[in-house]
Design a protein around this nucleic acid. Structure first.
Length: 227
DNA sequence: GATTGATCATAC
DNA sequence: GTATGATCAATC
């Protein structure tokens, strides 16, 4: 006997920020497997091959726009959704990917109109608590936080962004490491180390590994703590 | 043990 | 291939 799998459910998009927050708060204390079951979504067996799974699960349960593309996840509300892995004390365990970098135009971009600034203008952080070695289905959602950068936070991000983008624009993208930047860092964002993109070089252009912006855990820790 | 550099899945 | 969603695992 066999039957068609149940269709995977996506909740309707929330009509207000309040509604979105209420829904996110309702996740608190729930396990990943509960939410997956509710949505008729199968849980992947290999953790190594399911890195984006929880993020996509939360998109479904909160009703983000699946066609948002380059815009915020909740296009009508201007809210970006980020799930963030935390330990039992609520401390982030990982840095947070923010956006890829268009390295080729790094020399002409301005902070005010940057992809990073837009992406971080309003973020709903949904912590996912993973106790020591907790298998993914048993991890629980924590207290969600709706955040926009404070003046001090934006100044910090801007400073890092201008330094890092300035370096890329000046032709140093190929030698930039994740050690640069206080709150922000640049790290590879690619399928593998062989991927190449075009970036400025001291003399013309070069082929180099694509980079993305990531928020350091020390920065997101304060967001979760202070907001 | 924390961090950096590398990688994995899916949609279009 | 480009974008989204991130976490894995080698290295320090």
């Amino acid at each position: 006997m066999s039957r068609m799998p149940c269709e995977e459910i996506r909740m309707p998009t929330p009509q207000s920020i309040e509604e979105l927050c209420v829904r996110a708060q309702a996740l608190q204390g729930r396990m990943v497997c509960e939410v997956a079951q509710f949505l008729h979504v199968a849980i992947p067996k290999e953790p190594r091959r399911s890195k984006g799974f929880i993020g996509q699960l939360v998109e479904r349960i909160l009703g983000s726009d699946p066609a948002a593309g380059d815009r915020p996840d909740f296009t009508g509300l201007g809210v970006e959704l980020k799930t963030i892995p935390v330990n039992t004390h609520g401390i982030p365990k990982e840095s947070t990917f923010c956006c890829s970098i268009d390295m080729n135009t790094a020399d002409t971009e301005k902070w005010e109109t940057s992809r990073l600034r837009k992406r971080l203008a309003c973020v709903l952080w949904v912590p996912i608590e993973s106790a020591l070695l907790a298998p993914m289905p048993a991890r629980r959602f924590g207290v969600p936080v709706l955040w926009s950068p404070s003046l001090a936070q934006e100044a910090c991000l801007r400073s890092d962004w201008e330094y890092l983008m300035g370096a890329i624009g000046a032709g140093y993208g190929g030698v930039l490491s994740a050690r640069e930047g206080e709150a922000l860092q640049v790290r590879p964002k690619a399928a593998n180390r062989l991927v190449r993109t075009v970036a400025p070089a001291q003399d013309g252009a070069m082929q180099t590994l694509p980079l993305g912006f990531y928020l350091r855990a020390v920065f997101t820790e304060k967001i979760l703590k202070d907001t």
